[in-house]
Amino acid sequence: MRPMSVVVTKVCDIFAWFMVVFGALIINNGHNTPGGGFQGGAVVATFLSFLLAAYGSRRVFAWVRENIFGFMACFGPLSFFVFGCLGFPHSFFFNSIAVPEGGQPISDWLPYAGTISLMDLSVGCGVVGALSMIILLMYKSIHMVETGEGMGGERGHDRFER
């Protein structure tokens, strides 16, 4: 994929960040309004699509590190799991922050929606990481088919090393 005109790249510079802010808003307000971690995460992941479309794959691949997205895709589900466990001894997923045993919130600084809000953040983190990885891999394969770079030289789990 080649970079697009200067008009497109400048517009991308301004608006791609708005997508991140808008996605974060959807993630953060998932307990009050339609949305949540998955929907917001999908919106945030469009950031990478904008960059790839505007700047081209070669330049974006030089900027981004796949490992960061891998870490997010791993950290999100794990933190989701930990927040789910906060519900014990009532039940898994029980909102023990918003509905504590004695009726008093555990802390003032915790979100009033309790674990729901924290779990939204976890899911959002996981979805941003996973979708961004998918987008990167799709562009990589397009790049591979267009240029022939890396074709046939792959040593992955598909090699039967006898």
Binding site: G70, L78, F81, S91
Partner: peptide, 20 residues
């Protein structure tokens, strides 16, 4: 009484921990 939850949680945690 939490056995049904543990049943799902255990392989799910295994899946999330696998990359690490």
């Amino acid at each position: 009484r939490h056995l049904p939850a543990f049943l799902i949680m255990t392989p799910m945690l295994g899946a999330f921990l696998s990359p690490l």
